[in-house]
Structure formats: C-alpha cells, structure tokens
Simulated assay, not measured.
Amino acid sequence: MDDQTRIELEAAAFRRLQQHLMEDRPDVQNIDMMNLAGFCRNCLSRWYQEAANARGIDMTKEEGREVFYGMPYEDWKSQNQTEASPEKQAKFEKSFKENVLKDKS
C-alpha cells in the first residue's frame, strides 16, 4: 500500500470514530471513556490540535475542541454531559495522571 492510500484510510477511520462518538454514541460520557480506555473526546481533540500545531497551524485548545465536537465545547457539555459520581471523579483523577499527564512529560 502506498503512503497516500494509507493516509486516506487512516483519515477515514478517524472520521468514522469521530462520527461514532459524536452522533452514534453521544450518551457515552467522556469520564467513562477516560476511566475505561485512558482517552476521551477531549484527548482526540487535543491530539488534533497538537498535530495542527506541529505543522505550523495556529490552533488553540478550544478551536481544536470545536473542530472535533462540531460545536463549541460548552454547547456539547450542556447537551450531553451528565454529573459524575464522586467515585467516577476519583477514578478519573488517577486515569488523567496516568494517561494525559504522562503524555506531556
């Protein structure tokens, strides 16, 4: 397989993942994804932003989120996010340290 085809297939897989998370399963909470898999929609939007920045494209965290979510993040939260239990929040703190902060060191 040539590089261009590989890139196109990877992009198609990313778009399908984005569609699945945003349209097919907006009920799945970011905190549950993070606690189970070590990443969530915010991580995907951050990785998108970081890839843009690495290529010299100025993009803020909020701009990356808006691209990924298809709307301002605050709108997404108000439409889809539910309150997390103290147990989920504690598990999230551990997962965030192990996965997100580790990525930045």
Rank of each mutant, 00 (worst) to 15 (best):
D2P: 00
D3A: 03
D3I: 04
D3Y: 07
Q4I: 05
Q4L: 00
R6L: 11
I7M: 07
E8A: 00
E8W: 03
E8L: 00
L9M: 12
L9C: 06
E10T: 08
A11P: 08
A12W: 02
A12Y: 02
A13C: 09
A13M: 14
F14W: 08
F14E: 02
R15G: 04
R15V: 09
R15H: 12
R15K: 13
R15W: 05
R15D: 09
R16C: 09
R16M: 05
L17F: 15
Q18V: 11
Q19Y: 13
Q19M: 07
H20E: 05
H20M: 13
H20S: 12
E23Y: 00
D24M: 07
D24T: 08
R25T: 11
P26C: 02
D27H: 02
Q29P: 05
Q29G: 10
N30W: 01
D32E: 15
D32C: 11
M33K: 07
M33H: 09
M33A: 05
M33T: 02
N35T: 03
N35Y: 01
L36A: 14
L36F: 05
G38T: 12
G38Q: 03
G38M: 08
F39N: 05
C40R: 02
C40A: 14
C40S: 13
R41M: 01
R41G: 00
S45Y: 04
R46N: 15
R46G: 10
R46I: 15
W47D: 13
Y48D: 12
Y48S: 11
E50I: 14
E50C: 11
A51H: 08
A52C: 13
N53Q: 14
N53D: 09
R55S: 12
G56Q: 03
G56F: 00
I57H: 08
D58S: 13
D58G: 12
M59V: 15
T60A: 02
T60V: 13
T60R: 09
T60K: 06
E62S: 11
E62I: 06
E62G: 02
E63K: 06
E63S: 06
R65N: 14
R65M: 12
E66M: 08
E66D: 14
V67R: 10
Y69S: 08
G70W: 11
G70V: 13
G70F: 13
Y73Q: 07
Y73G: 06
Y73P: 06
E74R: 06
K77W: 01
N80I: 07
N80F: 03
N80R: 07
N80Y: 04
Q81W: 11
T82K: 14
T82D: 14
E83K: 15
E83H: 13
S85P: 01
S85A: 02
E87M: 09
E87D: 04
K88S: 12
Q89W: 05
Q89N: 06
Q89I: 12
K91D: 03
F92N: 13
F92L: 14
K94F: 02
K94D: 04
S95E: 03
S95K: 01
F96G: 06
F96A: 03
K97N: 11
K97C: 07
K97F: 05
E98T: 01
E98G: 00
N99Q: 08
V100D: 06
L101Y: 00
L101H: 02
K102A: 14
K102V: 10
D103M: 09
K104Q: 11
S105E: 05
S105H: 07
